[in-house]
């Protein structure tokens, strides 16, 4: 029941999200891609919980992830807003202040 199908699916979703995170140049879009990676991870988690017959634990863990993601989204979007307000830039390639 578990094993290949859902693992393949979540791995593919994670890779897709990672690709977007790495390449999208819009800060909000990057955040959206991070959400996809988080979703992929919790999907895998739930699948494992199902397989292990530990519904409550898996669900609780996934719930924790959901809340984490919500908090991350709130703070992340807040940061984006503040950055834009301060610098007028919302694109990743413009934000290179830590350049070495």
């Amino acid at each position: 029941m578990t094993g290949m199908p859902v693992t393949l699916l979540s791995a593919a979703l994670f890779g897709l999200g990672l690709y977007g995170t790495l390449t999208r140049r819009d800060l909000v879009a990057v955040l959206a891609c991070v959400e996809i990676m988080l979703g992929a991870a919790s999907l895998q988690l739930v699948a494992f919980a199902r397989a292990a017959n530990a519904l409550g634990n898996g669900e609780a863990l996934a719930l924790v992830l959901v809340v984490l993601a919500a908090a991350e989204a709130a703070v992340g979007l807040g940061l984006v807003l503040a950055t834009v307000k301060r610098t007028g830039k919302s694109r990743v390639e413009e934000l290179t202040e830590v350049s070495g």
Partner: peptide
């Protein structure tokens, strides 16, 4: 050479981590 890696692009860093 290493300085080239540090171009300030956060996505570049993330790609390296990945």
């Amino acid at each position: 050479l290493l300085a080239l890696l540090q171009n300030g692009d956060a996505q570049w860093y993330a790609a390296l981590i990945g």
